[in-house]
Design a protein around this nucleic acid. Structure first.
Lengths: 71, 71
DNA sequence: TTATTTTTATCGTTTTGCAATAAATTTGTT
DNA sequence: AACAAATTTATTGCAAAACGATAAAAATAA
């Protein structure tokens, strides 16, 4: 099992593109993409906070606990 | 608003002390205490994973979105 | 094809997780 | 009060990683 960041669901729900989100979260588009695709091994709570704020959601909405029997 | 880590609820539910948890999470007691008391500014997903595993819970169970109008 | 969005990659800086260790503080027990 | 156990706080140090800045590649849309 592994924890992954899933922004897709909330982004779709809020109809926000990565580009839009990056602007609001105040993080570079490139780095947000890394977070979104689980290339990051850690997250600053501050960043998570900004994302939740921008997507108007709870941490639990974007953090998932999944089987890592993929890829 | 800020995201905080709240281990107390799940620790109580699982009846686990910090000392026990530290052993299972494979992190030093000192550092787990830091996480527990929100002195950490970031968390490794790997660590979060180990904590969720040890407490048998979801990330959303230990991550809270609260007003930072305290202390 | 052309434009737009997203993903990858590289370099450099700064931050921070975490170990190791030890001391201080709190909590529990008799 | 006295003692033990658990928790918190503090230091030092290092390796790892976030994130910025930037640019190029790849994917998606029009």
């Amino acid at each position: 099992m592994a924890i992954i960041i899933n922004l897709d669901v909330m982004m779709a729900k809020r109809k926000k593109s990565l580009t839009e989100l990056a602007g609001e979260v105040d993080i570079t588009l490139a780095n947000l993409s890394i977070l979104k695709n689980n290339k990051a091994k850690a997250v600053r709570l501050e960043t998570l906070d900004a994302i939740c704020k921008a997507l108007n959601c709870q941490p639990g909405d974007i953090l998932e606990y999944v089987e890592d029997t993929e890829d």
